[in-house]
């Protein structure tokens, strides 16, 4: 395909004119997209209309899988848990992240120097570099009820009554998982917001300071306002990630105990590969895909309308 574009020495590479030959360059990406995303997604929708165990021929059953989904307690529970993970991965890290970033940037940094601020930021960021599977192994070991460090510390400081089977008790498991996700995510928001803050014109703060505004007033009036684009992007990306969360559940709880921490992604996974109800798993995955896409598009449109154009 490169040949074709080389053949015409008079072709004009400047934009706006005769873009025809450039289409060849989109071919590899388009072929890949069709083979890896479009075709499989279409097949997934087809599977969702069938009863199939993965072997033999799928049997077409129409919308039966979807009808069953809507009365399936586990399915609704999984989306309820998704909401909890949006809190843990989007809302709490954003709230803490804005605050920590602002404190580091215009409270610690001017008083103690940028090096200390950078160092603290790096510590908050560190969990973010870990593969989630590693974080999961680490935390499930820390949560271990008998010899795990969390219960050991509680017993040592005389609060042994608070010791729990953190991941094994259906009352606590979801909070235990949320805690790990918060730990993983805070660094991401701190880094993004600190980058955003360096964009804010210092004159704004100076003027406010001269007018006698305290730190909290400036935080509310200037920082939060100026960081709106970053806050929007972070909320969008982390919410979408929260809806898709899989690895922490796989590693920490396996959706359990019972269905106490099951999420849509894990629910479809078990239908695919554990109980071999491929059609049902495909229906869950399709619903999740549609939901995530709709939410992502809606949030992105809202955000681009409020900031800048999609592609300039």
């Amino acid at each position: 395909m490169t040949q074709l574009s080389v053949q015409r020495p008079n072709a004009r590479p400047n934009r706006g004119e005769r873009p025809g030959g450039y289409y060849w360059y989109i071919v590899p990406g388009a072929v890949g997209f069709i083979a890896i995303v479009l075709l499989p997604f279409a097949m997934n929708i087809w599977y969702s209309l069938t009863r199939w165990s993965g072997v033999g021929i799928p049997q077409f059953i129409g919308l039966e899988n979807y009808a069953r989904l809507f009365v399936d307690q586990t399915f609704w529970a999984s989306f309820l848990h998704s909401a909890a993970f949006i809190v843990a991965m989007a809302i709490i890290p954003t709230a803490f992240g804005v605050f920590i970033a602002a404190v580091l940037f215009d409270y610690i940094s001017p008083r103690f120097g940028t090096r200390i601020a950078s160092f603290l930021r790096a510590t908050f960021y560190l969990p973010q570099i870990l593969p989630i599977a590693v974080a999961g192994v680490l935390w499930s070991w820390m949560y271990q009820p008998q010899y795990g460090i969390i219960n050991t510390i509680l017993r040592n400081v005389g609060m042994g009554d608070l010791a729990q089977n953190w991941l094994g008790d259906s009352d606590f498991a979801i909070y235990a998982v949320m805690n790990v996700l918060i730990w993983l995510r805070i660094g991401y928001t701190v880094v993004i917001f600190m980058a955003g803050l360096s964009r804010v014109d210092p004159a704004l703060h100076e003027a406010a300071e001269i007018d006698g505004a305290g730190w909290f007033q400036r935080f509310r009036a200037i920082t939060l306002n100026q960081l709106r684009p970053e806050i929007a992007v972070v909320l969008i990306t982390t919410s979408v990630a929260a809806l898709k969360v899989f690895a922490p559940i796989f590693v920490l709880t396996g959706g359990g105990p019972g269905t106490a921490t099951i999420v849509p992604a894990y629910f479809s996974f078990t239908n695919f590969f554990t109980t071999n109800r491929v059609g049902y798993g495909a229906a869950i995955a399709t619903v999740l895909a549609v939901l995530v896409t709709v939410i992502a598009v809606a949030l992105l449109r809202y955000q681009t309308r409020n900031t800048e154009g999609f592609e300039k």
């Binding site: 997209f33 997604f41 495909a282 995955a285 895909a289």
Partner: peptide, 12 residues
């Protein structure tokens, strides 16, 4: 390709 959950592609 970026937003779609991989669960919706994995079995195919």
């Amino acid at each position: 390709a970026f937003t779609i959950p991989q669960e919706a592609l994995v079995y195919p």
